[in-house]
Design a binder for these strands. Sequence first.
DNA 1: GTCTATAGAACGATAGAC
DNA 2: GTCTATCGTTCTATAGAC
Lengths: 200, 200
Amino acid sequence: MASPGTRTQILDAAEQLFAERGFRGTSIRAITNLAGANLAAVGYHFGSKAELLAAVARRAIEPINAAQSAGLDRLLAETADPPVADLVEAFAGPLFDEMPGGARTSRLIVTILSDPAEEMRGWTGPAEDAVRDRYFAAFRRALPGLSERELGFRLRGILAVAAVDRVDADNTRSPVTGEAARHWAITFLAAAMSAPPTRT
Amino acid sequence: MASPGTRTQILDAAEQLFAERGFRGTSIRAITNLAGANLAAVGYHFGSKAELLAAVARRAIEPINAAQSAGLDRLLAETADPPVADLVEAFAGPLFDEMPGGARTSRLIVTILSDPAEEMRGWTGPAEDAVRDRYFAAFRRALPGLSERELGFRLRGILAVAAVDRVDADNTRSPVTGEAARHWAITFLAAAMSAPPTRT
DNA sequence: GTCTATAGAACGATAGAC
DNA sequence: GTCTATCGTTCTATAGAC
């Protein structure tokens, strides 16, 4: 096994610090100090701080995306019309799982999604959109009376609950354990997704 | 009617810019430029940028807090045990309403709550805690089987959905109107809050 | 209360030696 | 690929004139 390499150590340090302090709250100096690398290494390996963020985000999102996709494949292999509760678990569950890179992944994603800074947007790729579209279609079949727009609202609600829980786990004095949060969230979200359409 | 006064104009400008760009993304210069005031006025009127944020947050939270409290009073005047759906509407509804100061209030609160910066924490006061405790007690009566910790999780879920919707309304190309979002959110959240306790 | 001026520190980026 | 050194910018905060 080769040594981790400066590039990877910078990615690890940046992931941790962006999650803890946000993009603007993290300096390149803090990242390279934590990584044990030189200040100029970020420029050499990534070009700029914004491009480093994009690399960190891509690496963090990828395993979640893959788990969501595999979960949907598994459900669709059994039936063409999986029930709402199963879809919720397959979609939301990976957001609570500990990923190989560590436990900070979801926290990072919230920080990115809720940061108003311009650099935080536009790094999602076609893979993320494809998974989202597949779940969208599956939920539409499971919830035939729901309009596209209200379903879109509800899918964002899933992300919101998963995300803010992770923020809160860091800020609260008595954080819930990961397993309890996962179960509570799926109970909460399965009921929410199963609600009848809002009458207008 | 006296002129708005430099202090108020700074508060207005800071509320708008903190909501749009976050705390660290907003400079005192940008605030005083937008307010038509001098750079040194922030120091004179508020002491520091962090104290200005606290003043902005207090002013933004107060009407939401009052509306939540009045809504609960109204429900409790009719029955000692309001149903879950009514509690959800009274608690979450004000988060979607346009407040006197403008439409940015909820957006600001999300930005503050999800910002990892240290300055963002510790400005909530006893009034906010009191309202939260009263709703907590009312939900406990309406959901007798639910543990305190799972109820706490669900109350944070309400804030999460309301909050992220407001973020999204700014970022999406086709934002939902405020009224539709309010109705959809209350449908979604009433069903979620009414879910039976997670079996362990 | 409002202004000018500036101190003092941190930042992102990069040139150029090795 | 890694390092030192530094440029140019931007920031908060404040001293002191009016």
